[in-house]
Simulated scan of single mutants.
Amino acid sequence: MMSADRLTILYVEDNEMLRATIVEYLEELEHPVTPVRTAEEALQSLETDHFDVLLTDVSLPGRSGIDLGKHALERYPDIHLILSSGHDVSGTAKDMRNTQCLAKPFDLDRIDEVLESVRQSLRAGQS
């Protein structure tokens, strides 16, 4: 794993403009980021690379971000899941370990807050 301040992030978002904007922002923060468009692409990336964080939109073409997240948490118990949605998914997320919600639309400061809580959790050894 990288230093506690840099998080390896798998970012799943089917909206191309939003994906490009968020990737650019995360890279400015020096987080190594792998952007993909679908849950299926994310599953392939998870099999080949290690990620600290799976940041996924809930509404994806094909498999939903929630299904993707559940699968990722099952297979990769150390991963931290951030569910991004315009709908309230906190009821679903509260039953999922290492999971937080990021309500859409969100501002960049909110991403920082969520990633900081992941960093604190990793520092505390609560992965």
Rank of each mutant, 00 (worst) to 15 (best):
E113G: 03
A103N: 12
M17G: 03
S117L: 10
E74R: 12
L81E: 11
E28Q: 13
L68H: 05
D107T: 06
Y76E: 08
Q120R: 14
Q120F: 00
R123F: 00
D95G: 12
L26T: 05
D95C: 02
T99Q: 13
P35Q: 06
S3Y: 01
I79P: 09
D49W: 03
A72I: 02
D14P: 11
P61N: 09
H31L: 04
T48S: 15
R63H: 07
T38G: 09
E13P: 10
K104G: 09
S59K: 11
T21I: 08
I111C: 08
R63E: 14
S84K: 04
D67V: 01
D52V: 03
R75M: 10
G65V: 02
L115A: 07
E40D: 15
P32K: 06
L46Q: 11
Y25T: 01
D88T: 10
V58P: 05
L43R: 15
H87C: 05
G86M: 06
I66L: 15
D57E: 14
S117P: 02
M17T: 11
L54K: 08
Y76W: 11
G125V: 04
R119V: 01
V114C: 12
D14L: 00
Q44D: 15
V33H: 04
Q44K: 14
V23W: 03
K94R: 15
G62W: 04
R37D: 12
L81T: 05
L81V: 11
F106I: 06
V58D: 13
A93R: 12
Y25D: 10
S45D: 11
L55Q: 09
E116R: 10
A39S: 15
D112K: 12
D78C: 02
P105N: 06
H87K: 10
D107I: 04
D49C: 06
H71W: 13
N98V: 00
L43V: 07
L26S: 05
F51I: 04
V23H: 07
G91C: 05
D57C: 03
R119C: 07
K94I: 03
